[in-house]
C-alpha cells in the first residue's frame, strides 16, 4: 500500500532531514514496514520514486538488513537471541519451545536473532522490538500470550517509532 497521507507527510519530512536524500531509505522502509506489516514491493517502489533511485537500489539496500521483512509476517514478530551468552543461559530452549508452540499461529512469527545487547539478563527476546529478558520457555510464552490478548500493547512490526518527528 502506498504511504497514507499522514505517513507521506512524515516521509517527506524524513527525506528533508538528510543532506542527501538516499540516506532516508532505512527510515522510510521502517515507516512503510510499520504501516503495512512488512516491506512490500509497492513500498520499495514508492520509496525509490521519492528519493530518486531505482527500485533495485532500494531492494539492494533493504535486503542487506535483517529487520526488513519482505514477506508477510505475523502481527507479532518475536526475536529470540541464541548468541553466545543466551546460548549457555537457555536461549535455544526458549527458541525451540516458541517455534513449536507458535508453528501454526499466523499472528506470531518466531525468529532466531543475533545478540540483542541484553546479555546481562540472558536469555532475552524482543516482541516487535520491545525487550523481554531473563526468560524461561514458560515466561516467554506468557509474554506472547499477553500481547495476543491485548494485555500488553505491541509496537509496530518495525518497532513503531520509525518517524520520531523533528522538533
Amino acid at each position: 500500500m502506498a504511504f497514507t497521507a499522514e505517513n507521506l507527510l512524515l516521509a517527506n519530512e524524513i527525506v528533508a532531514r538528510y543532506p542527501k536524500t538516499k540516506s532516508a531509505i532505512l527510515p522510510l522502509a521502517h515507516l512503510a514496514q510499520d504501516q503495512d506489516g512488512y516491506l512490500t514491493q509497492d513500498a520499495m517502489r514508492e520509496i525509490a520514486g521519492m528519493i530518486g533511485v531505482t527500485p533495485a537500489e532500494v531492494l539492494g539496500t533493504c535486503s542487506f538488513y535483517t529487520m526488513f521483512k519482505r514477506d508477510e509476517v505475523g502481527r507479532l514478530v518475536v526475536s529470540v537471541c541464541t548468541n553466545v551468552t543466551c546460548l549457555v543461559m537457555g536461549g535455544p530452549e526458549v527458541l525451540e519451545h516458541l517455534e513449536q508452540r507458535y508453528a501454526s499461529d499466523k499472528e506470531v512469527t518466531i525468529e532466531e536473532v543475533e545478540c540483542l545487547a541484553a546479555c546481562g539478563n540472558a536469555p532475552a527476546m524482543q516482541v516487535n522490538y520491545e525487550f523481554h529478558e531473563s526468560l524461561t520457555p514458560g515466561s516467554a510464552t506468557e509474554i506472547i500470550e499477553a500481547y495476543k490478548s491485548g494485555e500488553l500493547t505491541a509496537r509496530g512490526v518495525s518497532g513503531g517509532v520509525a518517524g520520531g518527528g523533528q522538533g
Binding site: Q41, M44, R45, V53, T54, P55, A56, E57, V58, L59, G60, S63, F64
Partner: peptide
C-alpha cells in the same frame, strides 16, 4: 547510470538482483 541491477542480501547470500518485474 542504469542501476537496474544491484547486490541483494549479504554475506554468503549476497547475489546480483533486479527488482521484481523490472
Amino acid at each position: 547510470g542504469d542501476r537496474l541491477i544491484d547486490f541483494g542480501e549479504r554475506g554468503g547470500e549476497m547475489q546480483v538482483i533486479t527488482y521484481p518485474d523490472d
